Simulated assay, not measured.
Amino acid sequence: MAGETVLDDALARLEAAIGRVEGAVDQRLEHAGKIADLESELQQLGTDRSRLAQALDAAEARSGRIEEANQDVSRRLVSAMETIRGVLERNSH
Protein backbone atom coordinates (compact mmCIF):
# COMPACT_ATOMS: atom_id res chain seq x y z
CA MET A 1 0.00 0.00 0.00
CA ALA A 2 2.88 2.36 0.65
CA GLY A 3 3.88 1.92 -2.99
CA GLU A 4 0.42 2.87 -4.10
CA THR A 5 0.51 6.04 -1.99
CA VAL A 6 3.84 7.07 -3.49
CA LEU A 7 2.51 6.28 -6.97
CA ASP A 8 -0.74 8.17 -6.28
CA ASP A 9 1.24 11.17 -5.02
CA ALA A 10 3.48 11.08 -8.09
CA LEU A 11 0.45 10.83 -10.40
CA ALA A 12 -1.20 13.74 -8.59
CA ARG A 13 1.94 15.87 -8.98
CA LEU A 14 2.18 14.85 -12.65
CA GLU A 15 -1.46 15.77 -13.25
CA ALA A 16 -0.95 19.11 -11.48
CA ALA A 17 2.16 19.79 -13.58
CA ILE A 18 0.31 18.86 -16.78
CA GLY A 19 -2.53 21.18 -15.70
CA ARG A 20 -0.06 24.05 -15.21
CA VAL A 21 1.53 23.36 -18.61
CA GLU A 22 -1.90 23.31 -20.27
CA GLY A 23 -2.78 26.58 -18.51
CA ALA A 24 0.48 28.16 -19.66
CA VAL A 25 -0.13 27.00 -23.24
CA ASP A 26 -3.68 28.35 -23.17
CA GLN A 27 -2.44 31.66 -21.79
CA ARG A 28 0.28 31.85 -24.44
CA LEU A 29 -2.23 31.19 -27.21
CA GLU A 30 -4.53 33.85 -25.79
CA HIS A 31 -1.65 36.36 -25.69
CA ALA A 32 -0.68 35.46 -29.25
CA GLY A 33 -4.24 36.15 -30.35
CA LYS A 34 -4.21 39.50 -28.57
CA ILE A 35 -0.88 40.39 -30.20
CA ALA A 36 -2.29 39.54 -33.63
CA ASP A 37 -5.34 41.70 -32.90
CA LEU A 38 -3.13 44.58 -31.77
CA GLU A 39 -0.93 44.28 -34.87
CA SER A 40 -4.02 44.37 -37.06
CA GLU A 41 -5.34 47.41 -35.21
CA LEU A 42 -1.96 49.13 -35.53
CA GLN A 43 -1.96 48.49 -39.27
CA GLN A 44 -5.49 49.94 -39.52
CA LEU A 45 -4.39 53.00 -37.54
CA GLY A 46 -1.52 53.48 -40.00
CA THR A 47 -3.93 53.26 -42.91
CA ASP A 48 -6.29 55.74 -41.23
CA ARG A 49 -3.39 58.09 -40.51
CA SER A 50 -2.34 58.05 -44.17
CA ARG A 51 -5.91 58.71 -45.30
CA LEU A 52 -6.28 61.57 -42.80
CA ALA A 53 -2.93 63.06 -43.86
CA GLN A 54 -4.08 63.07 -47.49
CA ALA A 55 -7.39 64.64 -46.50
CA LEU A 56 -5.56 67.30 -44.48
CA ASP A 57 -3.26 68.08 -47.41
CA ALA A 58 -6.27 68.44 -49.70
CA ALA A 59 -8.07 70.66 -47.15
CA GLU A 60 -4.99 72.87 -46.76
CA ALA A 61 -4.69 73.22 -50.54
CA ARG A 62 -8.39 74.10 -50.78
CA SER A 63 -8.01 76.59 -47.93
CA GLY A 64 -5.14 78.25 -49.81
CA ARG A 65 -7.27 78.53 -52.96
CA ILE A 66 -10.16 79.99 -50.93
CA GLU A 67 -7.78 82.49 -49.31
CA GLU A 68 -6.55 83.60 -52.75
CA ALA A 69 -10.12 83.90 -54.03
CA ASN A 70 -11.07 85.90 -50.93
CA GLN A 71 -8.21 88.32 -51.51
CA ASP A 72 -9.18 88.68 -55.18
CA VAL A 73 -12.81 89.38 -54.26
CA SER A 74 -11.68 91.90 -51.66
CA ARG A 75 -9.51 93.73 -54.22
CA ARG A 76 -12.39 93.78 -56.69
CA LEU A 77 -14.80 95.12 -54.07
CA VAL A 78 -12.38 97.90 -53.12
CA SER A 79 -11.97 98.76 -56.80
CA ALA A 80 -15.75 98.75 -57.33
CA MET A 81 -16.31 100.95 -54.27
CA GLU A 82 -13.68 103.43 -55.49
CA THR A 83 -15.31 103.51 -58.91
CA ILE A 84 -18.76 104.09 -57.38
CA ARG A 85 -17.34 106.78 -55.07
CA GLY A 86 -15.71 108.50 -58.06
CA VAL A 87 -18.95 108.40 -60.04
CA LEU A 88 -20.92 109.78 -57.08
CA GLU A 89 -18.39 112.59 -56.60
CA ARG A 90 -18.50 113.55 -60.27
CA ASN A 91 -22.29 113.55 -60.28
CA SER A 92 -22.58 115.56 -57.06
CA HIS A 93 -20.71 118.59 -58.49
Rank of each mutant, 00 (worst) to 15 (best):
E22C: 10
L29M: 14
A36C: 05
A36M: 10
A59Q: 10
G3K: 01
E22F: 02
I66L: 15
N70W: 01
L52S: 04
L52G: 00
R28S: 15
Q27C: 03
R65L: 14
R13T: 06
L45N: 01
A32F: 07
R13Q: 14
S63C: 02
L42A: 07
G46M: 01
G33Y: 03
T47A: 12
A12N: 12
D8P: 00
S40N: 12
G46P: 00
A32N: 05
S63W: 02
R51M: 06
A36T: 12
E39I: 00
L14K: 10
A36S: 11
G3D: 07
T47E: 15
L42I: 11
D9W: 03
E67C: 07
I35L: 10
D37N: 07
E67L: 06
E15S: 14
A61R: 08
D9H: 09
L56N: 13
S40T: 15
A16S: 09
E22S: 11
T47S: 12
R13M: 11
A24P: 00
A53F: 00
H31R: 15
R51H: 08
L7Y: 09
H31F: 13
R49K: 13
Q43M: 02
A36N: 12
R62N: 04
E15W: 06
Q27M: 03
H31M: 14
A53T: 06
E41S: 07
A16T: 03
D48E: 13
R20A: 10
Q54G: 12
E39R: 04
A24V: 06
D8A: 12
R20Q: 08
T5V: 10
E67H: 12
T47M: 13
S50W: 03
L29Q: 15
A55Y: 01
G23T: 11
N70K: 01
A17L: 08
I35Q: 07
Q44R: 14
K34G: 05
G3Q: 04
A16H: 01
G46K: 01
L7N: 07
Q44T: 09
E22N: 12
Q44N: 10
E30R: 06
R28P: 00
I18A: 13
A59P: 04
V25K: 10
Q27Y: 06
Q44I: 06
H31V: 14
L11N: 10
E67V: 04
V25R: 09
D57W: 08
L42S: 04
G64N: 12
G64H: 04
S40K: 15
L7E: 09
E4T: 06
L42P: 00
A17D: 10
T47I: 15
L29V: 14
R62W: 01
I35F: 03
L14W: 13
V21H: 12
D8Y: 08
E60K: 09
D48K: 06
E39A: 01
G19S: 14
R65T: 07
E4N: 02
R20E: 11
R28T: 14
E15L: 07
H31D: 14
G3W: 03
L56W: 11
A55H: 02
E30M: 06
E41Y: 11
G3T: 02
G19L: 09
